[in-house]
Computed example of a mutant assay.
Amino acid sequence: MVAKVLESDIGLKPCPFCGGFELHIETDSEPTSTVQVECDTPGCEASGPHGKDADEAARLWNRRAPADRIGKRPL
């Protein structure tokens, strides 16, 4: 099931890959119900981590690496 949402509805940051705001919340019902944010920008179609609900999916989507860690090896 797809639930279209506006970025302003739940405070989503733009797609970290393309910068687009064409985003939606996708709910997967099989085998367990999980939710994730997906980008609908043509040519991108990125998806975020799975959460247990829309709020968790949005929080996980909005998570970004600290600026001082970008391009560096994991700690």
Rank of each mutant, 00 (worst) to 15 (best):
L60Q: 12
F17I: 11
A54E: 13
W61C: 07
S47Q: 06
H24A: 05
C18Q: 10
D53A: 05
H24R: 07
V5C: 04
E56S: 02
Q36L: 09
F21S: 15
E26A: 07
L23R: 02
N62P: 00
D55C: 06
Q36M: 11
A54D: 11
T32N: 11
R63I: 03
P74G: 12
P66A: 15
T27L: 08
V2N: 14
A3D: 12
P14K: 11
L23H: 04
G20T: 07
A3Q: 15
P14T: 10
W61H: 07
L6A: 13
T32H: 10
C39E: 02
K52C: 08
D9R: 12
E30K: 11
V37K: 04
I25F: 01
F17Y: 11
D55P: 04
D53W: 06
L75A: 13
V37P: 03
K4V: 08
S33P: 00
A46G: 01
P66M: 12
K72H: 14
L75Y: 05
W61A: 01
T41V: 13
F17A: 10
A54L: 01
G48V: 04
P42R: 14
G48A: 06
A67Y: 05
E7A: 15
A65V: 06
D53R: 03
P74I: 12
A58V: 15
K72A: 11
F21A: 13
D55Q: 07
C39D: 01
V5S: 02
T41I: 00
G51N: 07
C18W: 10
K13W: 00
D9S: 13
E22C: 02
L60S: 09
P42G: 01
T34G: 00
A57G: 06
F17M: 08
L6E: 15
E22V: 06
D40G: 01
P49K: 13
C15N: 09
E30F: 11
E45V: 00
P16R: 05
Q36R: 14
C44D: 10
P74F: 10
D53K: 07
L75S: 12
C39Y: 01
K4F: 11
V37D: 00
P66V: 14
V37L: 01
L60W: 04
A46H: 08
V5F: 03
E26F: 01
K13V: 06
E26S: 08
A3R: 14
F17R: 12
